[in-house]
């Protein structure tokens, strides 16, 4: 990659059952894209369908990929990212984030939300920066913390 190429960012969605995830993903994707970063969103089939309906013109999200295929592509060295935001509100989300930590060179941010956010965040043992908020329906506690990270990334 050329040195002046925009940094590649992956937003890795977990299960879409907690409402704040989609809202923060759209927000974060748009903010980082506007700041000149090359953003890709990866999700399950269900999460990607929600994304396509929420942003049918691709205004907020320019690139979206299947989560399983994205992981395969990273392992098989067809692609990688500079920064990854791994969204998690469950044990399964944590397993995917831990995998990302092992297979990618990306700086990893674990975005932990949901009713048990704090307890889940405490069990993280891999190398990452944690963004933790007990947010389910109201995205603002998580948005406020994400804003601080964005400020650091684009400054």
């Amino acid at each position: 990659m050329a040195e002046d190429a925009p940094k590649k960012v992956l937003l890795m969605m977990g299960c879409p059952e907690v409402p704040v995830q989609m809202s923060i993903v759209l927000y974060l994707s748009h903010k980082l894209t506007k700041a000149g970063l090359d953003v890709t969103v990866a999700g399950t089939d269900a999460a990607n369908k929600l994304l396509k309906v929420s942003d049918f013109d691709g205004y907020y999200v320019k690139n979206s990929v299947d989560l399983d295929q994205c992981i395969v592509d990273i392992i098989e060295k067809r692609t990688d990212f500079d920064i990854c935001f791994a969204f998690m509100h469950s044990d399964a989300g944590m397993a995917f984030a831990a995998t990302m930590s092992a297979i990618s060179k990306a700086k990893l941010y674990a975005v932990v939300f949901g009713r048990n956010a704090e307890a889940l965040a405490e069990t993280i043992e891999f190398n990452c920066e944690k963004i933790v908020a007990k947010a389910v329906h109201n995205p603002n506690p998580l948005k406020n913390k994400i804003d601080k990270v964005i400020a650091g990334l684009v400054s």
Partner: peptide, 17 residues
Amino acid sequence: IDPGYKIFKDYYIIGVP
């Protein structure tokens, strides 16, 4: 094994080491 270990034709193991 580490995350990403391949078994069978195309499954890469996901998980917490």
